[in-house]
Computed example of a mutant assay.
Amino acid sequence: MKTNSKRKLTKSTNRVLTGALGGIAEYLNWNANVLRVLYVILTIVSHGFGILLYILLAAIIPNKPENAGFFEQMRQASQGGATSQPARKTKGRKEIHNVHEEDEPRHQD
């Protein structure tokens, strides 16, 4: 297996709930659905311990920087890492021309 020292475990955009298992699957180069099925089997065999472990993984594994959620942005701001908002491409306002709007006729009883 090819190792990359810059590879980092982060939550995936291929998510069902939080993206924790998808991120682990991406890190290990596995199919995310196979990992999810194995995880469900582990949870059933361990009498629900997998649920607690999943909550812990969801809390510990960080989001990808471009997908950073509210709490990740607050954490970065408190550490001084993200002092300004990332530049976003703004699109102009779309205008619709030649539109004719009519009300539906009222039904008379």
Rank of each mutant, 00 (worst) to 15 (best):
M1Y: 10
N4P: 03
S5L: 15
S5A: 15
K6L: 14
R7K: 15
T10H: 10
T10A: 09
T10R: 12
K11N: 01
K11I: 02
K11V: 01
S12V: 00
T13C: 05
N14D: 14
V16N: 09
L17K: 10
T18E: 14
T18M: 06
L21I: 10
G22W: 04
G22L: 00
I24A: 08
I24C: 05
A25D: 07
E26V: 12
N29C: 05
W30G: 04
N31T: 05
A32T: 02
N33K: 08
V34P: 02
V34C: 09
L35R: 03
V40L: 15
V40T: 14
I41L: 14
I41K: 01
T43E: 06
S46Y: 04
S46I: 06
G48E: 00
F49W: 08
F49M: 13
G50F: 03
L52F: 13
L53M: 08
L53D: 02
L53F: 10
L53I: 06
Y54Q: 14
L57H: 02
A58E: 11
A59R: 07
I60D: 00
I60T: 06
I61P: 04
P62D: 04
P62Y: 04
N63K: 04
K64C: 02
P65E: 07
E66P: 01
F71V: 15
Q73H: 06
Q73D: 09
M74W: 11
A77K: 10
A77T: 08
A77S: 08
Q79H: 08
Q79N: 08
A82C: 05
A82T: 13
Q85M: 12
A87L: 12
A87M: 12
K91G: 06
I96T: 12
H97A: 06
V99A: 15
E102V: 12
D103L: 15
P105S: 11
R106Q: 12
R106E: 14
R106W: 06
H107I: 15
D109R: 14
